[in-house]
Simulated assay, not measured.
Amino acid sequence: MSGQDAFHRVTVVGLGLIGGSLGLALRRCGEVDEVVGVDASAAVGERALQRGLVDRVEGDPATGAQGADVVVVAVPVGSFGAVLEAIAPGLGEDTLVTDVGSVKGRVAAEAEARLQGRGRFLGGHPLAGTEDSGVEAALEDLFQGALCILTPTEETPAPALERLSALWRLVGSEVVTMGPEEHDHVLAATSHLPHMLAFSLIRTFGGLDEPERLGRFAAGGFRDLTRIAGSDPVMWRDIALANAGPLLEMIDRFEARLDDLRRAIAAGDGDALEAFFREARALRRGLPPRVHADEEQDDQQ
Rank of each mutant, 00 (worst) to 15 (best):
R169P: 08
V171P: 02
V171K: 04
V171A: 04
S173L: 02
S173G: 12
S173K: 10
E174Q: 11
V175M: 10
M178F: 03
G179Y: 13
G179T: 15
E181P: 00
H183I: 03
H183N: 05
H185R: 14
H185T: 07
A188C: 09
A189F: 09
A189D: 13
T190M: 05
H192Y: 12
H192V: 10
L193Q: 05
L193T: 08
H195W: 05
M196T: 08
L197F: 08
A198G: 03
R203C: 12
R203A: 15
G207W: 10
G207K: 06
E210D: 12
E210N: 06
E212F: 11
R213K: 14
L214Q: 12
L214V: 08
R216M: 04
R216V: 01
G220F: 02
G221W: 02
F222G: 01
L225I: 13
R227F: 02
A229Y: 05
G230L: 15
S231R: 12
S231F: 13
D232G: 05
P233D: 03
V234Q: 07
V234G: 08
W236N: 00
A240N: 05
A240C: 14
L241S: 00
L241E: 00
N243K: 02
A244R: 15
G245I: 03
G245P: 03
G245V: 10
G245A: 11
P246Q: 02
L247T: 00
L248P: 00
M250H: 07
I251T: 13
I251F: 11
R253F: 11
E255H: 14
E255W: 13
A256N: 10
R257G: 12
R257Y: 10
L258C: 06
D259T: 15
D259K: 15
R262Y: 10
R262L: 14
R263Y: 14
R263D: 15
A264V: 05
A264W: 04
A264G: 04
I265W: 13
A267R: 05
G268F: 03
D269I: 09
G270D: 12
G270M: 12
L273K: 00
A275E: 14
F276T: 06
A280K: 07
